[in-house]
Design a protein around this nucleic acid. Structure first.
Lengths: 260, 260
DNA sequence: CAGTGGTCTAGACCACCGC
DNA sequence: CGGTGGTCTAGACCACTGG
């Protein structure tokens, strides 16, 4: 198990007209193909995040495969973070990223305000995506994105400043609603409002200095050292659906990495 | 498979007089106990890093267990980074951390010098471990450690400054040899010289400013922003055997983290 | 208690590696 | 070619969860 890239290697069941190709495998493993097949059914919404899949025995019989083989397929999807298994209860589709995941890079230890930070949308506009943004988001040149500037605070103290780009046909409903009514957490809200599940993200950390405008918003001095987090977030199907840059006080930065 | 903590939960075969207790399991899984048993044989040096274990069939027969059960045990050890399997070749004990792993946090892109950084030992001394260091290293209060200060350079340019503490009975041989003859990489050297395999490490990142002495050594200005990496490194048996603090130019900092 | 996932078995056959 | 790990099967029994 945990064979390096069985899923990436094996051909998915294809999303074309003949979606239910029941041919086991072209040239690769059965469980890898099975995993890709189940993955497709999940991303297409057949099983909504939070719900349980059919039991192992049922799925195995349905696909005409031995129990052990099916379990290997499920293990692959668990390793990918797509499923979660609970002894005696069932196999569940994982809900997407929810928490205030940016806080894992910082320790704002002021007086107990350790929960979810408050969010205020400072600016919302529709803009033409830059060349780079269009590439990352898989848009054609000149496509438009929803651009947000957001300030996040703990116990009333500003701590993080964010600039967020969202591809526009997909997140159109966010262009209308009153931003003052938005939730503090973006991902659960877009899951509810836009039906988009944020499943995975890549955070690129670097260091810099705040420009005067950023500094003013964060109530720090211009030129104050900051940590910049450039995030690319992906949905269940692996498409990049968000670009975000976050700035925070470098002196509050704190992160632990495991080596090997 | 990949059950959360099967190994941690199950009792190891014990290193006492009756080391070869062949009782399958007290209250838990067979493969978990088996994995702990194999782990002990590895950490005790029965199979040296780089060598191959006996074949699956042989190990299975030796432990009176089915093939699938043995494979689950091996999968656990692979997940822990202790073993490495290669189709058609065998199952190998992984060699410890080798590379210049600190460089994964920095991009020193000056003129092509991208290989292993040169290392110069600036200072070596035997000192009484601080309270905190003794705790981390599992020493009694007042025990002595080998303290090193090391400067690492790429193409002649200083880039990283390090302060390293090594528990002393274990690394005594490093207190004698001529530091000018040391290798550029510490971990492969201590594996060769002291027989200690560095298997895993935890790096805690934070931000700060260089004091005048540090700045001079790194050829930067005093007060220059820096990233500080506090590392705790562990051997095969999980003991902490190194404490290290590394400082580098914050503007060269660059790291990518995966979220979920 | 019924239903779920977790463990274990004893086989068969395949795919890869190196000689 | 012989030896290795990788895949797959068809069963049995255990451990956990919930009503």
């Amino acid at each position: 198990m945990n064979s390096p890239s069985a899923l990436d290697r094996d051909a998915p069941p294809s999303a074309g007209p003949n979606a239910s190709s029941d041919q086991p495998a072209p040239g690769q493993s059965r469980y890898g193909w099975l995993a890709a097949s189940l993955r497709a059914r999940i991303t297409q919404g057949e099983w909504v995040p939070g719900t349980a899949l059919p039991a192992e025995t049922a799925l195995a019989k349905e696909h005409g495969v031995a129990l052990g083989t099916l379990r290997q397929a499920l293990a692959l999807l668990v390793a990918q973070g797509l499923l979660e298994r609970q002894h005696g209860r069932g196999t569940f589709v994982r809900v997407g990223l929810g928490g205030a995941s940016m806080l894992r890079f910082f320790r704002f230890s002021q007086g107990g305000g350790q929960g979810t930070p408050q969010s205020i949308i400072l600016q919302r506009s529709v803009q033409i995506a830059s060349q780079e943004a269009a590439d990352d988001l898989g848009l054609h040149a000149g496509a438009s994105v929803l651009q947000l500037q957001r300030l996040r605070s703990l116990s009333g103290k500003p701590c993080l400043l964010e600039s967020i780009a969202l591809p526009l046909p997909l997140f159109a409903s966010l262009a209308q609603s009153e931003t003052a009514d938005w939730d503090d957490l973006l991902y659960p809200m877009v899951q509810r409002v836009c039906g988009v599940t944020i499943h995975r993200a890549e955070d690129r950390l670097s260091f810099g200095l705040l420009n005067p405008e950023q500094a003013a918003l964060l109530q720090l001095d211009a030129g104050h050292p900051c940590v910049q987090v450039d995030r690319r977030a992906f949905d269940l199907s692996g498409r990049c659906v968000e670009l975000r840059t976050t700035w925070g006080d470098a002196f509050a930065f704190q992160y632990t990495a495991q080596v090997r």
